Computed example of a mutant assay.
Amino acid sequence: MTTLFITHPAGLRHVTPDGHPERPDRLRAVERALEAEPFAGLVRLEAPEASLERIALCHPPAHVERILKAGPQEGLVALDADTVMSPGTVEAARRGVGGAVLAVDEVMAGRARNAFAAMRPPGHHAERERAMGFCFFNQAAIAARHAQQAHGAQRVAIVDWDVHHGNGTQDIFWDDGSVLYASTHEMPLYPGTGEPSERGTQDNIVNVALSPGDGSDAFREAFDLAILPRVEAFRPDLVIISAGFDAHWRDPLADINLREADFGWATQRLMEIADRRCGGRLVSVLEGGYDLQALTLSTTTHVAALMGG
C-alpha cells in the first residue's frame, strides 16, 4: 500500500498581488520538499479538473457559475480584500477539487493507503455560497461528500488543524450528522467563528479554540482530550485532514507556536484511528501555511508520517 502525492502545475498559475501571503511560492516549496530522496517512494499523480457536478456537491450551481464567470481574462479581480482571482484561478481551483476527489477515489478503492493532495488556492473558508479567505471551492468538504456519493461512505470525519477556523466546512455540514467536523484554531483570529459552543444541529461540530501564544502542549492536549476521542467514537469510513501549517511558530499570520513535529504527531494519531476504524483510509488536503521554511519542514514531517516514516 502506497502514499499518493497529487498536485498540478495549474496551482502555480493562480496569481495574487505582490505581498499576498497565499502565493505560488507556497506550492513550489511543497514540491521541492517532496523531491528529496526520502520521498522517492511516493506515487505521484496530476490533479484532474473537477466537473461542475462534483463541485456542486457542496456549492449550489448558481454560485459555482458566478465564480467561474468572475475569473478575469487578464489582470486581477478582487472578490474581497483577501480573495483575488487571476486568469489562472478557475483552473487551479477546479484542479484543487479534482485532486481531492482523485485522492478519495484512489484511497476508497484500495489502490493507496492514504494521499496528500497539495494544491492552491486553499478551500476551508469557502462556504456554500461565499468565496472568502483566499478560498473559492471547499476541497475537503467536496471530497467528503464525494466519498459518500460515489463510494458509499456513511460517515466521514474531517479534522482541521489550520490555525484559522474552517468556517466554510462548518457551514456546509452544520446540519449533517453524517460528517464530523473537528477543528483546532487560534481565537480571536480570522474569520471570527469557531467558538466551542458552535456544535452543529446534530452535535457533529467540535471546535477547540487555542489562545495566542499557545504551543505544543495545548495543541496536543486539545487533540488528546477533545478531537481524537470524538473521531474514534464517530467510527468514520474515511478520515480527511484539512492540513494547514500556519500554526507553526514561524508563520506570519497567527500566534500559535507549534513545531513541525506536532504535525507529524497529529498525523500519526489520526492514522492510528484510521487503521482501527476504516482500513487506514485517510486523505490530506493542503490548506494554509505562509512561511515557506515552516511549510517545507511541516510538509516533509506530515508526508513522512503518512508514508510510515
Rank of each mutant, 00 (worst) to 15 (best):
residue 207 N to R: 04
residue 199 R to G: 06
residue 234 F to Q: 10
residue 248 H to E: 04
residue 242 S to H: 01
residue 215 G to T: 10
residue 190 Y to L: 08
residue 243 A to F: 04
residue 238 L to W: 05
residue 243 A to W: 03
residue 232 E to R: 14
residue 222 A to L: 09
residue 211 S to H: 09
residue 210 L to F: 10
residue 197 S to R: 12
residue 218 A to H: 00
residue 192 G to R: 06
residue 202 Q to G: 04
residue 233 A to G: 09
residue 244 G to V: 06
residue 204 N to T: 14
residue 235 R to F: 00
residue 202 Q to I: 02
residue 227 I to C: 09
residue 226 A to V: 05
residue 205 I to Q: 13
residue 245 F to T: 07
residue 212 P to K: 03
residue 216 S to G: 12
residue 201 T to G: 12
residue 202 Q to F: 11
residue 251 D to W: 07
residue 238 L to E: 08
residue 231 V to N: 11
residue 224 D to N: 14
residue 228 L to R: 02
residue 236 P to F: 10
residue 210 L to K: 00
residue 199 R to S: 05
residue 243 A to R: 08
residue 208 V to S: 00
residue 227 I to R: 02
residue 215 G to P: 03
residue 239 V to N: 01
residue 239 V to S: 03
residue 217 D to H: 02
residue 241 I to F: 07
residue 204 N to I: 09
residue 221 E to F: 10
residue 245 F to W: 04
residue 240 I to Q: 04
residue 247 A to D: 07
residue 233 A to R: 14
residue 243 A to M: 05
residue 238 L to A: 04
residue 197 S to P: 02
residue 217 D to R: 14
residue 229 P to Y: 05
residue 212 P to Y: 02
residue 197 S to M: 06
residue 202 Q to D: 15
residue 197 S to T: 14
residue 237 D to M: 02
residue 252 P to N: 06
residue 201 T to C: 01
residue 213 G to Y: 03
residue 243 A to P: 03
residue 222 A to E: 13
residue 230 R to N: 15
residue 232 E to C: 06
residue 223 F to M: 15
residue 241 I to L: 15
residue 198 E to F: 00
residue 214 D to C: 10
residue 233 A to Y: 01
residue 249 W to E: 15
residue 238 L to P: 09
residue 249 W to P: 02
residue 240 I to M: 03
residue 207 N to G: 07
residue 201 T to D: 11
residue 224 D to C: 11
residue 234 F to M: 09
residue 221 E to S: 13
residue 202 Q to L: 14
residue 191 P to D: 14
residue 252 P to S: 10
residue 225 L to A: 15
residue 242 S to C: 10
residue 233 A to K: 12
residue 223 F to S: 12
residue 238 L to T: 07
residue 222 A to P: 03
residue 224 D to T: 13
residue 244 G to N: 06
residue 194 G to E: 01
residue 214 D to F: 07
residue 212 P to H: 04
residue 205 I to V: 15
residue 198 E to P: 00
residue 201 T to H: 09
residue 241 I to E: 06
residue 239 V to A: 03
residue 206 V to Y: 00
residue 216 S to R: 09
residue 195 E to D: 15
residue 189 L to S: 09
residue 195 E to A: 15
residue 236 P to M: 04
residue 233 A to Q: 14
residue 225 L to S: 13
residue 191 P to L: 13
residue 225 L to N: 11
residue 215 G to R: 07
